[in-house]
Amino acid sequence: MSHSTRVLKSEWTKVRSVRSTVWTLATALLVSVGLGALICGVTASTFDDMSSSEQVTFDATYTSFAGMGIGQLAMIAFGVLIVSAEYSTGMIRNSLAAVPQRGTFLWSKVLIAGALVLVVGMVTSFCAFFLGQALLGSHGVGIGDEGVLRAVVGGGIYMALIAMFAVGITFVLRSPLLAFAILMPFFFLISNILGNVEATKKVGQYLPDQAGTTVMAVVPDTLNRPYGPWEGLLIMVAWTAAALLAGFFVLKKRDA
């Protein structure tokens, strides 16, 4: 067994052996699906009250992902905790004493956490979609409709990317308090404001979550972005890569 395989195995043991993993990921799934279902249910019962123009541009797929805005916060919490726990408990010293090749250590953690959040993200996205469409009834769409599968798969990738963005940022910040204090309000509120208020929209729409959510929209006018769905996701990938690289350089340079 090669060295990196051993480190991967070790990181998997770390992830699966703490309760916060189950808690955060289960919360992400339940909140995203539950809140999405609630909003789909309400929308279905009030659909006839909507104006005809609203009805024409109604994006059933995007509506079923309405819970992800909150659910993603639990994904971020997962990303923050798997990294910050190393620092807050002092485990990082044991970890790096065992694996002095810091790159191997960080990328193994990223790979294990990334694979896990991708699986959970996909399950979340598909569950949210199917439950949402079932509740929307005749106003819903099918997975085979144009652009829908892309949106659902994209939703899963989005959830994984947001967690990995948090992983990268937390490797830079180290402190759980600092990471939560910056990431939570940012993705809950600030980026939404920056991405939607006219004055800041030009720049704000390129923020990671604002760009990433484009992939989940099927009706082109839903978000009204100057880039397409895949481009939007790509922008988010770039943000995540940048955050992880920043984390890598900080880990490499700074004393543990």
Partner: peptide
């Protein structure tokens, strides 16, 4: 093998798992 002043143990990870993840990383 080292014991540093800060114990460096995750309070929520069972003793066995704590040692297991360190052991696995070094085969």
């Amino acid at each position: 093998g080292a014991l540093l002043e800060a114990k460096g143990v995750h309070g929520g990870r069972r003793a066995h798992d704590h040692l297991l993840c360190l052991a696995q990383s070094n085969g």
